[in-house]
Computed example of a mutant assay.
Amino acid sequence: MKQTLYRLKEDNSSFPYSCNDGIKVIGGKQTAIQGQNVSFPCTLTEMPATDDISQIFWKRKTGQNPVYSDFFTISPEYGPEPVNAGHDTSRFKFIGSLNETNGSIQLSNVTLLDEGVYSCIFTLFPSGSYRTEIPLTVLVPPVTNLKIKVPVPVVGEDWVTYASCMAAGAKPPAEVTWDTGSSQGALRVVSNSTQHANGTTTTISHLVGTPTRDINHLLVQCVVKQHALATEDTLPFTIEVHYAPLSVNIRETSKDVLECVSDSSPKARYTWSRANQSWPRSGISAEGDVLQLVSPTSDLGGLYVCEASNPYGQKEVSLYVYYATATGGCIACWTVLVFSMIAVAVAVGLALWYYKSKYGVLPWREEVVFQRPPGDDENQGVEEEKVDEEEVRETRS
């Protein structure tokens, strides 16, 4: 049994559609990524042998064409033809076959304005018209970028933003997260989203925290996920925090060559000097963090100072250089003055504390020196002679 229906088109004209239990037009929902191509499948099944295809109409209602209207036709007499397609004429292509009752078309370089509902209508003679609707969803991949804070955060500052990761113009909205490794406790994430009139969304995620030395040079990653992306988009970023030089030390890299090292950000500038003495005219070279004795002699002995400095402060360490004559020439003996003095002071202090706790007094005492008056030496001699005579008498008796 066949029934003919009349439905009003949005242009207020009538268009007949037929219903038949056996004849069907098969299509299906489609999803496309902006900039790619998409096919609209449309196949007629169970067409009676007594019918012929008079024409295939394609209609659409999209963001660019809000009024439901024809835009493409295929007929046995004229073949595929764009209708009211405007600038879209070259983007549509017939990929089906009338002999196989296949009215499929392809749209190239899909845009967000192409999203909407497409209708494929087969007109048969004498049966009538049959249709199917094909919704098209367009996905828009985000435009991602990473903005790093300028100027660089400094230790001692309050809450700061290290970097901002943006996923702009995405449809559907992108998911933006941060991979901060083992330093999650020192960092926080603050995110916000803005939806635009065209249906896309921009998401911005800020990585924030209080600047500390521990997170300087920490590698983090902004991770963006979205349905239009084949794989997640990863944007790496190394956190930089500035602070004054710390833990300045001098180490011997080779014979008669010393290097001054420090923990600082940005990298410290090193300056060498000799305390209470002028800098030797020859025999020594100081370039940056390296001090080298080119021709070691006793004249080069003394207290050397290395100062590490950057825009946020400075710190120095001292080193005493002395020479001892030995077989084979001069031997350079290097001692870090600060640590040596501290070690000696601690050792002496402990020894004195132990001595006093055991004996009750310190290991030294005050002595009173008596000086005899002038002329008293003769009386002393007489007294000594008297004592000797008495001892002799006692012995004889």
Rank of each mutant, 00 (worst) to 15 (best):
K2M: 13
N20T: 09
G22Y: 09
I26H: 00
Q30S: 00
S39L: 15
I53Y: 02
W58P: 02
T62L: 04
N65D: 15
P66F: 12
V67W: 01
I74Q: 02
P76F: 00
E77V: 13
Y78L: 11
V83C: 05
G86A: 08
T89E: 14
F92M: 14
I95S: 10
N102G: 06
I105H: 04
S108W: 05
V117E: 13
S119V: 11
I121G: 03
T123A: 12
Y130W: 09
L136V: 02
L136H: 01
V143H: 14
L146D: 02
K149C: 13
W159K: 09
T161Y: 07
C165I: 11
A168E: 06
A168P: 02
V176N: 01
V176H: 01
D179M: 10
T180M: 00
G181A: 00
V189A: 00
V189C: 00
A197I: 10
P211S: 07
N216T: 04
C222K: 02
A228Q: 12
L229K: 05
P236A: 11
F237V: 05
E240A: 10
P245R: 03
S264E: 07
P266E: 12
S278T: 05
W279I: 08
S282I: 07
Q292N: 10
P311L: 00
L319H: 10
A326T: 10
A326Q: 12
G329Q: 06
G329Y: 07
W334A: 03
V338D: 11
F339H: 14
S340V: 07
A345F: 09
L352T: 05
V361L: 08
L362G: 03
V369G: 01
P373H: 10
Q380Y: 03
K386S: 14
D388Y: 13
V392Q: 14
